[in-house]
Structures are given as C-alpha cells and as structure tokens.
Design a protein around this nucleic acid. Structure first.
Lengths: 244, 244
DNA sequence: AATTGACATATTGTCGGACAATGAGTCAAT
DNA sequence: ATTGACTCATTGTCCGACAATATGTCAATT
C-alpha cells in the first residue's frame, strides 16, 4: 500500500445542468419574479451561449419540479412550485415504497387532530364559511359515495388550509392523495350511511366556531378511529400496501 | 345566454411528455427493475419512433424526480426515488414559500411525539443500539455546538426510523433539513449547555427501552417546548421566515 | 501475472439548421 | 361584434454531425 496523491474529483457538470441551475437561482433569488415570463428559448440560448436543444433540456429539468410552468401552453412562466406538485411527488414516492394503510393512518392520527386544534385559533371568517359550505354540500350528496369522498377530502383540506400552515399542508398531502381515496371503499361500507362521518365533521366545525381546541382535537381523533375501524373491518388488511 | 354544446378539451400532450410517462410507467410497474440499465438513447428513440432529442427531453423530465440516475456518468439506470431526493424538494418548496419557525414547530410538535410513541412498540434491538450509540456520542461532543447539532438531528432521525413508517419519515423530512438547523443557533444559546437536550434524549430513550409510550411522548413534548422557548428567547422571531 | 499502450467501438453531450403547428396580433370586410 | 386573411413569434420535432469519454480487446512490456 504505497502512498498516493489524491486529486479531488473534478466537477464538470453537463451544460444543461449548469443552465438549469442558473435559471433556478434566478427564480428562487427573486431576480425573476413568480408569474413573470421567461425569455424565449432562442434568447436564452443566445444569453447562455449554448444551443436551443441544451436550453430545452435545462427547462425540462425544472419543469418537472414545478418551478417552471406554462402560461398558455406557449410561453414559459416562473412559478413557485405549487404544493400540489410537490405533494404529488411525495405521494408517488410513497406508493413506490409500498407504504401501508397503517403507516398512513398513523401519520393521519398525528396530523389531522393537530390541524383541527390549530384551526381553532387560526381560522378566519372566510375559512369558516368555506367549511360551512362544505357541510351543507355534504348533506346534499349523502348517497353518492364518490361525491362523498370528494367532500370528505375537501373538508379535511379546508381544515388544513384554515391553519394557514404551509408545512402542515405539505406534510399531509399524501393523506389527500393516497390515504382517503384508498381507504374510502372499506370505510364507507363499514360506516354504512355516511351519517357518522357528517356528525364528526359537524362537531369539529362547531368546535372551531366555539374556539374550543380540545374539543376539535378530540372529535378528529374519534373520526380517525372510525377510519381505522373501517379499514380493519373491510377486506383490505391494515398492514397491506396502499394501491394507487 | 344560448345553450351551447360543450366539447371536452382535447389533450394532445407533447411527445416528450408521452415518452416520459411511458418510461415512468415501465419503471414503477416493475417492468424495468430498479438498478437495471435502460436502453441507450438511440435505441429508445427507435423504439418510440421519435428522435433522440425528444427522448433526451423525456429523460430530463424524469431525471430530476430521481426516478432515473446515472450508473457511471454514462448509462442511465432506473432507481426508486430515494426519500432524500423527495425530502429535499419538499424542503426547498417550503423555503420558497417562506415557511416560518412557528409553522415548522407546529408540525414538529405533531410528529415528533408521535414518532416517540410509535418507536416504543416498533423499535427493533438494532434501532435501540443505534440510539444508545448516539447518546454516548452526544455526551462526548457536548461542547462542540456544530457536532451537537448533527447529533441532535441524528437522534431524531434514528427515532423516526425506529418507527419503520416511511410516510412519517417523509413527512418530517423538513424538520431535519430546515427546522433543526435553522433553530439551532438560538436554541443552543438559550439552553446554554446542551445538558437539557441530552437529559431529554435520555429519558426518551429510556422510555423506549421500558416500552412506555406515554412517557416517551411526554418527554418529547417537553423537548419540543424547550425548542420553542429557545427560539422565542433568541433574536430570531418565532413568526419569521426560516432562512435556508 | 500485472501493467501499459494502442486501437476500435459505443454512448452521451453539444451543436447547427430545418420545418410544421399553433397562439397572438393586426387589419379589413361583412 | 363577428369573421376571415394575413403576418409574426414561439414552441415541438426532426435530421445530421462531431467531440469527449467509457468500454472492450489485444498485443507488447515489465
């Protein structure tokens, strides 16, 4: 084992990555404001001193992350990655990693009651109105299971938005996209009419209006336990991977 | 307002998106196993009946999401997106959305005690050994604030891994990458010696070994409250955006 | 046997130019 | 106010080319 000189490995990033990073920086640093249109591909190519093909590859790199979007299907526009985009990638990663109902339920049990509690102090008048509207709508479509799922998801999402906490919103994205849709079939069969669901939602809404965090948290926990019971009673095992 | 026929808007995705989706499906469906090499760009181009440029754009689309990686800087290989990659994109999204210390703390307050509780029943012998090793190491580097931060993050991460819940692991990624590093400066000044931190960690570890979920949860809550106090006492405001 | 050198080959990164399709704007005709 | 014809800008896609670099083979050297 003779002593050897160690050179640090040289970087040499491909040009499309460099260009991609430059554009990214320009956006996150605010040099290009969100919503603003970017120069056209040809102009970018000129400015960076590369070919249009290279610029296009750089753009694709950012496009998927949601940093770049299309204004009207033509021009590109700088956009802050909408939580949706990031949320979707989280969900798809979880799917690929064979996340189970139980894992998602545990996270739900941690986040949803928290959201309820926080919403009590953070909810604005507008948030409450939206929740109220959701309840009315839910009562109307009580028999349509598909529509009821949408309403259920919307309720929990409105609740999360009422906390005005973007970190929480993002952390619970997989619940919207994976947990509720996947668990729904079993849950709705177990809690035969959607009555129990609506009652829980109403109590949570009531607690928020009364500014009663503890009550909101408690009812959400009950609601989540109902979900657990539904999944366990359904034919889908609690420790089975969620199927997208 | 005359009645009008409504046609559903026609899709027409650009080819590079179609190709991208095809490849993505081939990977997530397991048709191409992870770690396996993909055909070369030229062959893909032939198979899909498009040009190499188009294939390359499709590849860039996937490359950013971590579904495709480089084997050796030449050939492409299929890889499951490592949780790291996804976690980073979540964190950077939160940064851009000017997430505040308070928002992150609230999420931490929801997830970390949950992790402690779950770890009590899910932790394997190996998990406990890793935690114990972390405690020993922490005691040794008590005076090196930077090293202490790393140990702190590692402790919480080991704890989360001990739950064997990938959804939880992903949901709390921003805590590792944003919350703890950003809050650390203030916290370490407020809780002058790291003594209080170590004590909390030890009690949590003890609770896990005794299989005492309630105790684990309680001590983690105390630990989190210490963080809150630290941030509030520090010069950085609790409602200020976290700076990356 | 192990290293080295020379060489052909395969694959990616980058370039340049070309054309079709489509969206946006202008202006005249109805 | 709507329609039609026209131009122009921009993106999507194609083609062909070349340089740089990894890979593989084989002989020559030590």
């Amino acid at each position: 084992m003779t002593k050897q000189v160690n050179f640090e490995k040289i970087a040499h990033q491909p040009a499309y990555r460099v260009v991609s990073e430059k554009i990214r920086n320009a956006i996150v640093s605010g040099e290009i404001k969100t919503g603003e249109l970017l120069p056209t591909e040809t102009k970018l190519a000129e400015q960076f001193g590369v070919t249009r093909s290279t610029v296009r590859e750089a753009i694709r790199l950012l496009e998927h992350g949601g940093i770049l979007g299309r204004a009207d299907r033509k021009r590109l526009v700088a956009t802050l990655p909408p939580t949706e985009t990031v949320g979707r990638s989280v969900s798809s990663a979880l799917l690929m990693h064979q996340v189970t109902y139980e894992e998602l339920w545990q996270v739900a049990m941690g986040l949803e009651p928290l959201a309820s509690k926080l919403a009590c102090t953070a909810a604005t008048r507008k948030d409450k109105l939206l929740l109220a509207a959701n309840l009315v709508h839910t009562r109307e479509i009580m028999d349509d299971h598909d529509a009821l799922l949408d309403a259920e998801i919307e309720f929990h999402n409105l609740l999360a938005e009422a906390t005005h906490n973007s970190a929480l919103l993002l952390a619970r994205a997989p619940l919207n996209e994976l947990f509720y849709p996947a668990a729904w079939g079993a849950v709705i069969r177990a809690l035969s009419p959607g009555e129990r669901i609506l009652v829980a939602h109403q109590h949570i809404y009531g607690a928020i209006c009364e500014n009663n965090p503890d009550k909101a948290e408690e009812w959400m926990k009950k609601h989540m336990l109902d979900f657990r019971r539904g999944i366990e009673m359904g034919n889908l095992g609690f420790d089975q991977p969620v199927k997208g």
